[in-house]
């Protein structure tokens, strides 16, 4: 059985853990380098990207995870996790860094502050309708040729469709929170890719 880690520095770790366990995985909460070294894949949860980035630095995980991403560790990031995996972060802190594992440019809080947070139904390639919960969500503004777009959203604000669920080789990213719903199919896709 594959061991899947959930980065457990801050955020909605519990929801990811329950979902992955319900799918039959052995789940490890990752707070240390040793724990990170023990997993076959890693989920970066939702939370505050500035906080998680800060804690990656202080915990010594930042560079180790960076090296593992380069070596092809499968990773799935939701919301804050997507931001951390992106290449360019717009409207972030001036010192905001990210791993660049997904060739994306994302705008933090690109759909607005909390009052603008929303639920919508997404049409995911190969799966059909999947519930999407967007909480102060990042918006994917542009993406490279190597990114496979698996779902888009037209938020009706005149800017057209933006990707909301993407994959680039072994790295997956969603700007929303599948873990907050009862629908585990995106996690299942990720597990099947391990």
């Amino acid at each position: 059985m594959k061991r899947v880690g959930v980065l457990s520095l801050q955020g909605d770790v519990g929801e990811h853990v329950s979902m992955l366990e319900a799918l039959g995985s052995e789940v490890v909460k990752v707070r240390t380098v040793e724990q990170l070294n023990s997993v076959d894949g890693l989920v970066l949860p939702g939370g505050e990207s500035t906080t998680i980035a800060h804690l990656l630095g202080t915990s010594g995980l930042k560079d180790v995870l960076g090296a593992k991403l380069e070596q092809g560790l499968p990773v799935f990031g939701t919301c804050a996790g997507l931001i951390l995996l992106s290449t360019v972060v717009l409207d972030g802190r001036s010192d905001q860094w990210s791993y660049g594992a997904l060739s994306l440019s994302v705008r933090r809080n690109g759909y607005g502050r909390q009052i603008a947070s929303f639920e919508s139904t997404l049409d995911v390639k190969g799966l059909g309708g999947v519930p999407g919960v967007f909480i102060r969500a990042p918006r994917i503004e542009s993406y490279g040729d190597d990114v496979e777009v698996l779902a888009t959203l037209d938020h009706g604000d005149g800017t057209g469709e933006h990707p909301v669920f993407v994959r680039q080789d072994r790295v997956w990213g969603a700007s929303f929170h599948p873990e907050l719903t009862g629908d585990a199919r995106l996690h299942e896709l990720f597990l099947n890719s391990l």
């Binding site: 909605d12 505050e48 947070s117 929303f118 919960v133 037209d154 929170h177 907050l180």
Partner: peptide, 23 residues
């Protein structure tokens, strides 16, 4: 994809931010 209908201010969306603040 067309314009996706969306809902704001639902209990899930409102409780969702609290979930993100965990830890």
């Amino acid at each position: 994809s067309s314009t996706n209908p969306s809902v704001t201010g639902s209990a899930l969306v409102k409780r969702g931010l609290a979930d993100m603040l965990r830890g």
